Measured scan of single mutants.
Amino acid sequence: KCTICLSMLEDGEDVRRLPCMHLFHQLCVDQWLAMSKKCPICR
């Protein structure tokens, strides 16, 4: 589950894993990281 948009991560979707190993939709986390340089879970 992407904790930014709260939707399930589905096969075939573009996802991004951060160095902390948390996984998000690529678009969601890219937009998040443009505003904050910290993982939305770890922050």
Rank of each mutant, 00 (worst) to 15 (best):
S36G: 15
L18K: 02
V15Y: 08
L27P: 12
L9M: 14
C39R: 03
P19R: 05
M8S: 14
E10A: 11
M21Y: 07
F24N: 03
L9Q: 01
R17Q: 08
R43T: 13
L23P: 06
C28F: 02
S7E: 13
L18M: 11
Q31L: 03
I4A: 04
T3L: 11
S7L: 11
C42L: 02
L18G: 03
F24M: 13
A34V: 08
C2K: 03
C39G: 03
D11T: 08
P19W: 01
G12D: 12
K1E: 09
S7P: 00
I4G: 03
S36T: 11
K1S: 06
C20G: 01
M35F: 07
H22L: 00
Q31F: 03
M35S: 13
L23V: 12
M21S: 14
K1Y: 14
L6G: 14
C42K: 02
K38Y: 04
R16I: 15
Q26D: 09
D11I: 08
L23R: 12
C20N: 10
L18I: 03
K37M: 13
I4E: 04
K38P: 12
Q26G: 13
C20P: 00
K38E: 12
L9D: 09
K1M: 02
C5L: 00
C28R: 02
P40W: 01
W32A: 13
K38D: 15
R17L: 08
L6V: 05
Q31G: 10
C28A: 01
D14N: 13
S7C: 09
V15Q: 11
L9H: 04
M21C: 09
E13T: 11
D14C: 07
E10Y: 05
C42N: 02
L27R: 15
R17G: 07
G12Q: 07
D30G: 09
L23A: 12
L27A: 15
E13A: 11
C42I: 02
D14H: 07
L18C: 02
M35T: 13
T3K: 07
E13I: 04
V29S: 09
L23I: 08
M21H: 13
I41N: 08
V29C: 10
L23H: 12
H25R: 01
H25S: 00
S36Y: 11
M35C: 13
C20Y: 15
L33P: 06
P19I: 06
I41M: 10
C42A: 03
R43G: 15
K1C: 05
H22T: 01
C39W: 02
C20S: 01
